[in-house]
C-alpha cells in the first residue's frame, strides 16, 4: 500500500507521470522505498531546500511507514 500511495502522490506533481516507478527494497539497514522519476522531474520532487521530499516522507511516515527510508532518484542514475 505504501508504495502505491507514494506513487500516487508523486505522479500527481510531476510532468512525466508515466516515468514514475516506486520499488520497495529491503536492505541491511531496513526497508527503502525507491522512487524513480524522469530526470527533468527530480528537482520538482525534491523541491526548494528539500521541502517537497520532506513532505513526501512525512506523509509516508504517517501512513505507517515510520522508519522506512524514501529515496528519490532519476531514471538515468546508475545504482
Amino acid at each position: 500500500m505504501l508504495d502505491e500511495a507514494l506513487e500516487h502522490l508523486v505522479k500527481g506533481i510531476v510532468d512525466n507521470p508515466d516515468d514514475v516507478h516506486v520499488a520497495e527494497r529491503t536492505l541491511r539497514r531496513g526497508r527503502v522505498l525507491e522512487v524513480r522519476v524522469h530526470p527533468d522531474d527530480l528537482g520538482k520532487v525534491i523541491g526548494r531546500n528539500g521541502r517537497t521530499a520532506r513532505a513526501l516522507r512525512t506523509v509516508v511516515g504517517a501512513l505507517g511507514g515510520r522508519g522506512i527510508r524514501v529515496d528519490l532518484v532519476d531514471v538515468d542514475q546508475v545504482r
Binding site: I13, A55, A62
Partner: peptide
C-alpha cells in the same frame, strides 16, 4: 505536521 505536508503536495498537484 502531516496536514501541512499534504497541503504542500496538494498545492503542487
Amino acid at each position: 505536521e502531516v496536514l501541512e505536508a499534504l497541503q504542500e503536495l496538494t498545492r503542487l498537484a
